[in-house]
Write a protein that binds this DNA or RNA. Sequence first.
DNA 1: GCAAACTTTGATAACGTTTTCACGACTCCA
DNA 2: TGGAGTCGTGAAAACGTTATCAAAGTTTGC
Lengths: 339, 339
Amino acid sequence: MTRTPATAANGRPTMRDVALHAGVGLATVSRVVSGDTHVSPSRTAAVRKAIAELGFRRNDSARQLRKGAAASIGLLIESISDPFFSLINQAVEEVALSRDSLLMSASSNRDAEHARKMILAFCARRVEGLIITPPERLGIECLQQEILAGVRMVFIDRPLPGLNADTVITDNVGGARTGVLHLIAQGHRRIACFTDREELFTTSNRVRGYREALESAGIPVDPSLVYAHGEYLFSDPLKAMLAGPNPPTAVFTGNNRATSTLLREFSLQKVSLALVGFDDFELADVLQPGVTVIAQDPLSMGRIAANLLFTRLDGDSSPAQTVTLETRLIARGSGEIRA
Amino acid sequence: MTRTPATAANGRPTMRDVALHAGVGLATVSRVVSGDTHVSPSRTAAVRKAIAELGFRRNDSARQLRKGAAASIGLLIESISDPFFSLINQAVEEVALSRDSLLMSASSNRDAEHARKMILAFCARRVEGLIITPPERLGIECLQQEILAGVRMVFIDRPLPGLNADTVITDNVGGARTGVLHLIAQGHRRIACFTDREELFTTSNRVRGYREALESAGIPVDPSLVYAHGEYLFSDPLKAMLAGPNPPTAVFTGNNRATSTLLREFSLQKVSLALVGFDDFELADVLQPGVTVIAQDPLSMGRIAANLLFTRLDGDSSPAQTVTLETRLIARGSGEIRA
DNA sequence: GCAAACTTTGATAACGTTTTCACGACTCCA
DNA sequence: TGGAGTCGTGAAAACGTTATCAAAGTTTGC
């Protein structure tokens, strides 16, 4: 019968307890637990029985300490409640799982200080690698030291300026260009742009794509039609544009949040301009009219970044690469409104 | 100048290296790193300098091993890409952060086997506590042993049958009742219900609320108006209901996914019944008409669950409690369509 | 039939921390 | 001036694993 379960200080049985209980050596228990096949069947069975009876569970802290690195990776994203990032998280989690690696994730909420803190916390936990969406002004100093220490890093959604490392990004310029060209093809020549702060990597590239599309069609870029601020206060600028002498007939929104904010504004101000939004979203097809979007592929991004990281962890030391994912125009109606 | 950075096998400097570099004892370094104030200013400065020069970072595995438990908690949710759960994740992360605890999270995707695996992985990492959304058939055996070992657990969104533990849930019955009564108040008497499998805890309670509301209004429950299956294939059943002799004039949807699936179906089949959905969602206010919902409060749920867990970790051993959060009816138009 | 190879096994030494312990150097109050 | 408290300090002993090593037992090769 289960003897009085021998315990560590912790309240948990240790390998030593198991060894005693099974009447074998400590090393044999370790071998069984680690799946080493060079143990006789009788002893393996005895150890298994003792483990079950005592409810032993290997202490991963000790294991990690001994082995030098944990089978775990860290993921730092912008915000877990943003569908784009939660899908990235999901994909990374799946890959990590398939590699028997545990994923720790955290949201920076665009705070560089917080991001640094979390990265250091991950490194203190001795993660093998990191996948990072760097917030503005993250800086490379705090990472440099970790890279030297052997922590592999992959950047996702945007590069870290000044650091030559593996990066997975969307073709922001091309995607935005495609979206705006789509509006131009419908006859629009007055196309507004609502988006986030232009200092951000993704935003600036998408705005560049917007400009390139206009220029390639011989349409002058009108700064009064571009609203790029971090506060997403679209109400007044939209009113101003519409009240102007030469109002826009179509809008390009630079990201998910801009799209939903603008749609809300359309609804409030009872207007309905042609619209193409960057990034797909739930219910885009249910709205009337369906919202035409430039879809990114966050699941692929996460998967690719994670695979890249694990390839590095497996020893690949080829030069750093940047993977750029193409976007996909999904026409649902809002972009097809004729000028 | 920075001497040749002494290194551990790992590639990283250890406290011993720091001690050597600073010309102090190992224990002193530990004291400085742990924020112990009983160290002379001169030595503290020397240690700080050595740490900076060597790029030392404390090895948390060793720390955990020595201290017995990690300052970390585990969160097991259903799916990180579900906004309801990603908000829970966000709230838990915030609380954990404020307690200097690291959060590890994983999605079960409704797979009990996978859930068990992740829970064991968390426990092997010696998390102090767990917040769990138990999938069906999770069972209590695998948890019992961990609870005995001192791991505290809080269940969220649904209880674990057979286990008397802290639980944070939504008032599913009351919320559903409120929603359906809202439809009844608009004069509807033929109210359909589209939702997930009725075996699920939340679903069954919401369906019960739906039934209670009808019964309390003296309206017989018509089984042909209730569609409760896990596949979310609403197209045919909706057609069948509408083609029937006594078609529904309103619908109650049991969760987010049911609501969006049904809205998509409305759009495809070009119908527009009155609708109240359980759980709020992005853009519910932008749709035409705005979708009336029974809003849950996932942020509060996560916050409360996390605080409950930390209270337990702080030593609270009062009887297990179940916190039930009230819902909020948000009328946006879709529920106000008159019969 | 005997040496050479391979198994299986348990002691034992790490891994990098925190914590105890004891020792010396102070301060304090008589 | 001296004994009782402090305080700062480093040596050393854990924490629970895994890896190394040598010993014992078993097979193989000629």
